[in-house]
Structure formats: C-alpha cells, structure tokens
C-alpha cells in the first residue's frame, strides 16, 4: 500500500494540481478542462493567465486524443490509456505536461519540428502560424497542424520535450509547456 503515499508525496513535491491517466476522449478532455477551470477560478488566478493555461491544455489534450486513437489502431496493446496528462503549479508558472507513445519512425520528424519552433521568436512564430493556417487542410484526424505553434505562442517560452524509449517500436513523447504567472 505504500505506493499510495509515495505517489501522493511525489505529486506534492512536484506541485502537481491535476494528474490524469486513463482514456483520452473529447468527453474526458471536457471534464479535465472543467476541473482545471474550477481549480484556477477558486485560486483567483488572473484571467489572462487562466486563458493561456486553458489554451495550452486544449491543444495538448486534443493532441493526445487524436494520436492515441492512431496508436490504438496500430498496436492493440498500446491503448490511449498509456498516455498521461499533468498540470503543475509553481510560484512563477504553470506547467502543462503530457506523455504519450509515439512510433519511433516519426520521432525524428517530430523532434525536428519542435527544435525548429524553439528557434523562433514571437514574430517568427506568428509568421509560421499565418503561413500554416493559409495553406493547411484539416487532416483526417481533425488537426490543423497548428497545435505546437499555438502552444509555443501562448507559452512565450521554449517547449521542453524528450523521447525516452518504451520498446523496439515506440518512444514515450514527453512534452512540457510552461505558462509564466507574472504577466
């Protein structure tokens, strides 16, 4: 039973206000958003920061919903339940963190895209956003290819990411997006 206390202590040490692991669907997305909103409202968080946190949450949750269904179909045992979503609250920032399995074959591409985003300043991100929105079509999975650009814009900081290995075929894509609390 010690793991209950251990997990609690780990969450406290990291200042995690929400941790969710389980099925990721549009319905769970709405529930997590509602829970986070109540949490931010009751703590009296400033509305501009609240909106940015909400924004990053939606994009990261919908990313998992879209991509976990694909992982689901591709590999029976790798269900959407192997993804995780967390929010940490520090004195100076919120951190929206996600982890989900991705195929090793797409890792290099994703890493290059994120590295590229991290090279851009505010203006560069804005230009990239406009360039993509003008030329993109909504994919079969319902994405516009704008999620990471939008997260980077709302954050104003570099996206933090890593790809620890899960098995021969999959890496675990870890993403941390910070939203500074002093506006």
């Amino acid at each position: 039973m010690n793991y209950i206390y251990d997990l609690h202590n780990a969450m406290m040490a990291q200042n995690l206000i929400i941790v969710y692991q389980g099925e990721f669907t549009q319905e769970t997305t709405k529930s997590i958003l509602a829970m986070a909103e109540r949490n931010l409202d009751s703590s009296g968080e400033e509305s501009g920061i609240k909106r940015k946190v909400f924004n990053v949450m939606v994009e990261s949750l919908q990313n998992i919903v879209k991509h976990s269904s694909e992982a689901n179909a591709a590999a029976g045992n790798l269900t959407s339940q192997s993804a995780i979503f967390m929010i940490g609250k520090q004195a100076d920032r919120y951190s929206i963190m996600t982890g989900n399995p991705i195929k090793k074959s797409v890792t290099a591409d994703l890493k290059r895209k994120l590295d590229e985003l991290n090279q851009l300043d505010k203006e560069g991100l804005k230009e990239m956003y406009k360039e993509i929105i003008k030329n993109t079509q909504i994919s079969e999975k319902g994405g516009a290819g704008l999620g990471f650009v939008d997260m980077a814009r709302k954050s104003g900081e570099k996206l933090e990411f890593d790809f620890p290995e899960m098995n021969a075929e999959y890496n675990f894509f870890c993403l941390k997006v910070n939203v500074p609390r002093e506006a």
């Binding site: 924004n55 939606v58 994009e59 993109t136 516009a144 704008l146 999620g147």
Partner: peptide, 12 residues
C-alpha cells in the same frame, strides 16, 4: 471567448 487551432482554420 476561446477557439482551438482546428477551429481557427475553419474560422478562416
């Protein structure tokens, strides 16, 4: 009040 990135494409 709020729109996600997929909606922003459709708003365009």
């Amino acid at each position: 009040e709020y729109f996600n990135t997929a909606s922003s494409k459709l708003i365009l």
